[in-house]
Design a binder for these strands. Sequence first.
DNA 1: TTGCGTGCAAAGGTTTTGCATGGCA
DNA 2: TGCCATGCAAAACCTTTGCACGCAA
Lengths: 141, 141
Amino acid sequence: MKNSSGYNTRQKEKLLDYLISNKDKHTNVQKISAYLTAEGTPVGVATIYRQLDKLVENGLVRRYTIDGKTGACYQYIDESQDCMSHFHLKCVRCGTLIHITCDHLSEIGEHIMAHHNFRVDPSKTVFYGVCEACMEEEEND
Amino acid sequence: MKNSSGYNTRQKEKLLDYLISNKDKHTNVQKISAYLTAEGTPVGVATIYRQLDKLVENGLVRRYTIDGKTGACYQYIDESQDCMSHFHLKCVRCGTLIHITCDHLSEIGEHIMAHHNFRVDPSKTVFYGVCEACMEEEEND
DNA sequence: TTGCGTGCAAAGGTTTTGCATGGCA
DNA sequence: TGCCATGCAAAACCTTTGCACGCAA
């Protein structure tokens, strides 16, 4: 299963290549399509959506939205990383999204599971607040 | 500011009434529109979207999506509870919102501030995951 | 050869926008 | 009276789907 599900096609390979080489960023169908077109190996959006659906279903890719806004974002899930300790911080002032990996934070999930009977999914969880740069700006307001 | 921003109109009042009386559930524009129409006080969807945008901006309402799928969900943020000192758990299966107050969790904000230079706003932050009841159900799948 | 994958275009659904009108302060 | 809010319809988007053809196994 997993990666080996279905046929191997040029389109599928190119899409996965792109997602993997951008696994530290957030992307979306528009960006993927633009990139593949620019590369000279265009892939129809319908195909991109269909492949992404499979990847999400197989757990290789994460789908989410920023602020609940329209337009899904996708990100390859690097299995070599400990996904349980990977959280996101989102600045409500400038919109920057920060990825943090931190042992201390990985305890959060364990604590909530143990004391509150709830299984947190860090890949879907975003901490909202204000980033360092914006805090400094606030002081000048 | 806050609630008092802008004019008071029948539409705005009805929308807020609905959101407040359903603050324990998640809703969406379609449901809101259907309800208000059934009540005999229909409100155009454009107005609903515009008012919701303001409410989200003013921090009175939360916007998010389930699994990054299309179609935003909205939920009123209950201010009578001191949301600054506790966190929320949201079950992605049944939609239940759980409030938790916990000393251990309050450390999270301090840790992130100290080690990641980011000031978390607990009232806007939601942990996504699966609640106890839904975990049990999953075992029967 | 078989049947999944792809591309295209059309359809479907959600959200936004322009504009004239309505209504709060 | 001056503006903001509303409603409607059109537009703008994003995503899905039907269908004929292409291609991996």
